[in-house]
């Protein structure tokens, strides 16, 4: 690693003021695991790191808001999210996702803001947050703005955030009786980067599905929402036939890429199988 300066601002606004959109060697370090990996492998040579460890404690807290949505401070660690009972009651899928996400030590350090801002397409959490229709609130010298997580990622390790814009919190809208599922598929070790992850939320009105959000992570450059499959499902009863048609629609519409986790053709089959299983799981959940 090369030599760099380390700043430890006390406020998020202070952190933003240290950033220079023209200088990519100045970066914010939240939990720091991903950044440290990039620095240790000489992928990233910072001149200055801005640690968020000392910013206001409010950014590492979470809870229900009066309007029924759930707010997660961006500095909350993944393990804070895993262990928060209110969040587990609000969206049980998050706690389920955490169990196989990286490992205990990384979850103890990595933050939700950092995970989203990093833009790594191989993560488990972004597709889940997209399926939950979550939004991020950001702060920059221009002020605050709200961005749906679904629009946050622009490509491979790329987001639409500007160089001096930081995520301050994640807001998940009320889920009411929406059902959710996340299925992770690995192809080498059981605990591995996902070859794909299928995140699904839907309203089941009686047996009829509405407002389905089906998101596939890790197969492309960013989480992919599969409108073609959602269209098959919405307004239908989740019968075996509908589920099979939706799985086929997902397999046909999602473009897969060959890598060491599998060929494109095999991953297409995995999309079909895991979309089917996620739908079956949601159909069988107790309301």
């Amino acid at each position: 690693m090369n030599a760099f300066e380390l700043a430890l601002p006390d406020t998020l606004a202070g952190a933003v003021s240290l950033l220079d959109p023209e200088d990519p060697t100045i970066r914010v370090m939240s939990g720091g695991t991903a950044l440290m990996l990039m620095m240790k492998t000489d992928v990233f040579h910072p001149t200055q790191l801005i640690s968020l460890r000392r910013i206001e404690p409010g950014y590492s807290q979470m809870g229900l808001l009066p309007d029924g949505s759930f707010r997660i401070g961006a500095m909350s660690t993944l393990s804070d999210m895993e262990h928060d009972d209110a969040l587990a009651g609000f969206a049980p899928v998050i706690r389920q996702t955490m169990k196989l996400l990286s490992n205990v030590r990384v979850r103890n350090v990595a933050t939700v803001g950092g995970a989203l801002a990093h833009g790594d397409p191989h993560m488990d959490l972004p597709p889940v947050l997209v399926a939950l229709d979550a939004q991020v609130v950001t702060i920059s010298p221009e002020g605050e703005r709200t961005i749906p997580v679904a629009e946050l990622h622009a490509g491979y390790y790329e987001t639409i955030l500007s160089g001096n814009e930081l995520i301050k919190e994640v807001i998940i809208p009320p889920q009411h009786a929406r059902r959710a599922s996340y299925l992770k598929c690995t192809t080498r070790a059981v605990k591995d980067w996902p070859a794909l992850g299928v995140a699904l939320t839907t309203d089941l009105d009686g047996d009829t599905a509405r407002d389905t959000r089906l998101v596939i992570g890790a197969v492309g450059e960013k989480p992919i929402r599969v409108a073609e499959a959602e269209a098959v499902i919405d307004g239908q009863i989740l019968s075996d036939k509908t589920i099979a048609e939706a799985a086929d629609a997902a397999a046909e519409s999602v473009e897969t890429i060959e890598d060491e986790l599998g060929s494109a053709a095999y991953k297409t089959q995995l999309v079909r199988v895991y979309v089917k299983r996620a739908l079956q799981q949601v159909a069988n959940q107790n309301a």
């Binding site: 370090m29 790191l49 205990v104 990384v106 103890n108 350090v109």
Partner: peptide, 12 residues
């Protein structure tokens, strides 16, 4: 809390 010592800056 357990963390990975090889990925955590001593300065922090």
């Amino acid at each position: 809390k357990p963390v990975s010592g090889c990925l955590f800056l001593a300065a922090l």
